[in-house]
Write a protein that binds this DNA or RNA. Structure first.
Length: 300
DNA sequence: AACCAGGATCAAC
DNA sequence: GTTGATCATGGT
């Protein structure tokens, strides 16, 4: 194990691949983490409002502290849950070395992306979030998700009894919403019907994380693309960012461009690029995609 | 005012 | 199986 945990304080073994909250939250995989005034981060995970300490500096690069919004440490059980959420059990150093040896571009992208982790996010929340992401931009995606949470999610309170945030809604709650209402109030546009129809499938237990996690990645993707509003790109995002499959390789406009610019792959369909990425980068293709995505946006 | 945003869907070929 | 118009919204 490359970390220990005590009362919400994570201590890492000193190494060059120390977890970077800033990069991890900024690479487009999650939508409910935001920078705090003091350099830390605030976010909602599993129905809890959390505060992370500032990005570890050079002087204390081995510590990460997590608190609730009243400044209290989180309990042990939730600390274990967060260790899974932040993917602290995975050997990023090994994956880093493997990918860096692929080519010079990936080596640079990996170096720039050092510290990015692939979060294991709640399956239903990830599905709905990336349905919203289709043909949309990140600031507006975040606004839509916050509005949906405020409208249909449970309120989260601090020690003083004040509301400090809203959990992402249960499938049963979203499944009962009228699409026209979701469109008007949450401003999700034509995606409203997809969101409700998909939520119904979850509420009826027609699809679940536990049913999918045993399958191979092909069968997994074939099942997930059946969800309304979910195509190949969104399905790959769901598999990657909910912890189902590290070999997923989402191809969007950015990846399409960078595969042209970085690797000279012109005139290829997104489906062809997805296959190319999975074959070329292998079992950690999803991490490679995140490195390239982060690197491309960094230098653009 | 057109164009774009971490695309999906349906019809037409 | 693969391509093209269409989709609602807000920012530039």
């Amino acid at each position: 194990m490359n970390y220990s945990i005590d009362g919400g304080i994570f201590r890492f073994n000193a190494n060059k691949n120390i977890f970077s909250p800033a990069k991890t939250f900024d690479c487009g995989q999650c939508f409910r983490w935001n920078p705090a005034e003091d350099g830390g981060f605030k976010g909602i995970v599993a129905g809890r409002a959390l505060k992370l300490c500032a990005e570890p500096s050079a002087s204390n690069s081995d510590v990460l502290a997590v608190y609730d919004m009243s400044g209290r440490r989180i309990d042990e059980a939730f600390g274990d849950h967060l260790a899974g959420y932040f993917d602290f059990g995975f050997d990023y150093a090994e994956a880093f070395e493997l990918l860096s040896s692929k080519d010079d571009i990936m080596e640079k992208a990996a170096e720039a992306s050092r510290g990015i982790h692939i979060l294991k996010q709640d399956f239903f929340e990830t599905v709905i979030s990336f349905i919203i992401s289709a043909n949309n931009n990140i600031p507006r995606i975040k606004k839509c998700i916050e509005r949906i949470s405020e409208l249909y999610g449970k309120a989260i309170y601090d020690a003083a009894g004040d509301i400090v945030g809203y959990a992402f809604p249960e499938a049963s709650a979203l499944s009962a919403v009228e699409p026209s209402e979701l469109c008007e109030k949450a401003r999700v546009g034509y995606r409203a019907e997809y969101i409700v129809r998909t939520s119904v499938l979850f509420a009826e237990n027609r699809v679940s994380y536990s049913k999918l996690c045993g399958e191979d990645s092909r069968a997994m993707q074939d099942e997930i693309v059946k969800l309304p509003g979910v195509g190949p790109k969104v399905a790959n995002c769901i598999m990657l960012f909910s912890g189902l499959c590290r070999g997923a390789f989402p191809v969007d406009v950015w990846v399409e461009r960078l595969m042209q610019d970085f690797y000279g792959l012109e005139g290829m369909s997104r489906q062809a690029l997805e296959k190319y990425g999975k074959d070329y980068f292998g079992e950690y293709a999803g991490l490679a995609q995140q490195f390239l995505f982060y690197y491309k946006r960094l230098i653009s």
